[in-house]
Design a protein around this nucleic acid. Structure first.
Lengths: 137, 137
DNA sequence: CGGGATCCTGCCTGATACTG
DNA sequence: CAGTATCAGGCAGGATCCCG
């Protein structure tokens, strides 16, 4: 029951970072989401279309696909090309910046492949120990 | 989340990671959070203590620090060592798996450093164009 | 086909206070 | 020092409908 403190959450939130004060972690936070990585990996094989991504990036909702694509485009990692045909055709192409990132992304995925079994194991081990502690006090 | 991914049998267990669904992206999603990365980078320089992290990882709340540390420990990336002294002392040490990841993380951070200005620029450019569209219909 | 707009839910997150 | 407990707000993200 905290009462009466009139604190108006004065977070001068500069999540929209100014060019000179954009920290590395801020940048990483933008591109390290599950969907961003998936999309970037797909786009590395050549231009991709919306519906194509909707199929290949399994589990993604239409909304998240749209939003993630927008953000990647906004950050200069993808270029959106619209062909005014009927039906419409939109292609997303990776930029040079994205190509440069792709190497690191490959490193990450390689790591994930190498250790995903170990991680799953560590998890179950941790959980088992946690349950045990619960009973043993 | 429909199936369709190739098996690659991870005999993992019944944790949140079902064998057929334990994809690389799932693993990445665990460690690619802003705080996880920051903490792992700190831990790479040697064992770190709770308050030490609270200071160095700027902007993190006590709650998030605790939660992120728990998850990293659970996934086998950090080892938590408690010294039953007064006052208590707890050290978090990276595991071999984390050390292996650190190389990739360094690659990512290097990329972020190289392109953070370009990203900020792309953003402001995109936003400017978006505002313009808004007025031009 | 490629989205935009809207509603709604639950988890993520921060702030604060308390504990061993 | 190193957390846990609790409350409250925000926004990520799914579902749905609609439009050019």
């Amino acid at each position: 029951m905290s009462q009466g403190n009139i604190h108006v959450s004065v977070q001068a939130d500069e999540s929209e970072c100014v060019p000179t004060e954009c920290t590395i972690l801020d940048v990483l936070d933008r591109i390290s989401s599950k969907w961003s990585i998936a999309i970037l990996l797909e786009a590395a094989n050549g231009p991709v279309r919306f519906t194509e991504l909707e199929r290949s990036v399994k589990g993604i909702s239409r909304r998240m696909l749209t939003l993630t694509l927008r953000n990647l485009e906004r950050d200069g990692l993808l270029v959106r090309t619209v062909y005014p045909t009927i039906p419409p055709k939109v292609e997303y192409t990776e930029t040079a910046m994205a190509r440069d990132l792709h190497e690191s992304l490959a490193g990450l995925t390689a790591w994930a492949e190498r250790h995903r079994a170990a991680i799953a194991l560590a998890r179950s081990g941790y959980d088992r120990a946690a349950s045990a502690d619960k009973w043993l006090g």
